[in-house]
């Protein structure tokens, strides 16, 4: 069952270029279409400025798309800051990278987990205290930690507290934006395992945004790779990373240093990371692409279906004209 559907959403910021430069619009997200089924995880990967976080904010209705539409549970998102929007926000929650910034330093952890219950009018008095205790247990925090303030917790415990608060309203969708990137390896594994357990127990769908391909594969059923605001490749997580087709995905996969014997020669891309304010014409990746042809500089490739079912936007990949979603 489709839970969340983004249909050709775009988001353009005004942008500025310093004191003497002229303003140039920045297409942070450009005609992105994504579908997320209930209880599943869609990973979104890409480098800084590729639009993955903006995509997450659009999915939650925190930012309106300039064009395109977002449908959640079959209906369009209500306008922001309306009563209907607030009701719906209880069904979808956001988890950020930095838990200390997401938590209120002056409130105890338990008080912060109880807050969404009060805002959304869930339960009453004693009932809420019980729910908070259960939520703490669900994320693996000792009951006494609820009485502490955020600065008294470790980084991993804080992220668990943020998750407990996000789960308070029993959401069906969790948008996780780099949720484990600030955590040390041993703690990162704890939180990743917990996210998978929570999904299995509660059937939550996740939009999992990260630059870390290994973590993304661990949690995702399907993965979309973004470059300068557009999805360049999308498919089942295992297939995508084992046999990347788009030259950018290939470079990303090959750039990951891994303990143990090297798989193949590393592809080192030339050039700087892309600047969203100076988007190259044609395929935005062509100036850095090791296999670009003349056509890549002039014509933007559409996202089409490859033979194995994945979606690829590359002139050199054999794809069929897409159905339903088109560029």
């Amino acid at each position: 069952m489709t839970l969340l559907a983004l249909d050709r959403v775009s988001r353009v910021y005004a942008g500025h270029r310093g004191l003497f430069g002229r303003a140039r619009p920045v297409r942070a997200v450009d005609e992105v279409s994504l579908v997320l089924d209930a209880g599943r995880t869609l990973g979104v990967v890409g480098e800084s400025g590729c639009g993955k976080s903006t995509t997450g904010r659009i999915a939650l209705g925190l930012e309106p798309p300039d064009s395109g539409s977002v449908r959640f549970e079959g209906a369009a998102l209500p306008p922001p800051n309306t009563a209907a929007w607030r009701r719906q926000r209880a069904r979808m929650q956001l988890v950020f990278q930095d838990p200390l910034a997401a938590l209120d330093r002056r409130l105890t952890v338990a008080a912060q987990i109880a807050e969404p219950l009060a805002i959304h009018g869930i339960g009453s008095g004693a009932d809420r205290a019980e729910r908070v205790a259960q939520l703490l247990a669900d994320v693996g925090l000792r009951p006494d930690l609820g009485r502490r303030h955020p600065h008294e917790l470790s980084g991993g415990q804080r992220q668990r507290a943020v998750l407990a608060r996000a789960l308070a309203t029993d959401p069906v969708l969790l948008v996780c934006d780099e949720p484990v990137s600030a955590l040390d390896v041993s703690i990162q594994a704890q939180v990743v395992n917990m996210l998978l357990d929570l999904q299995a127990a509660r059937g939550i769908a996740m939009l999992f945004i990260s630059h870390d391909l290994k973590v993304v594969r661990q949690v995702s059923h399907e993965v979309a790779v973004m470059y300068l605001g557009r999805v360049v490749e999308q498919g089942p997580a295992d297939m995508l990373f084992a046999e990347p087709v788009h030259p950018y995905t290939q470079a990303l996969v090959s750039a990951i240093p891994t303990p143990g014997p090297r798989r193949a020669a590393r592809i080192v891309l030339a050039g700087d990371p892309p600047n969203p304010a100076a988007r190259p014409p044609g395929c935005a990746f062509h100036p850095r692409c090791p296999v670009a042809i003349a056509r890549c500089a002039s014509e933007t490739p559409a996202l089409g279906h490859a033979q194995d079912g994945r979606l690829v936007a590359c002139h050199l990949a054999a794809t069929q004209a897409p159905t339903g979603i088109a560029a």
Partner: peptide
């Protein structure tokens, strides 16, 4: 060994990550 087991793999079968309990 704990650090290595806590790292997800990019390829091959997915396994549950072996996290190191507790914190530094």
């Amino acid at each position: 060994r704990g650090l290595l087991a806590a790292l997800p793999d990019l390829l091959g079968p997915r396994r549950r990550l072996a996290s190191i309990p507790g914190a530094v």
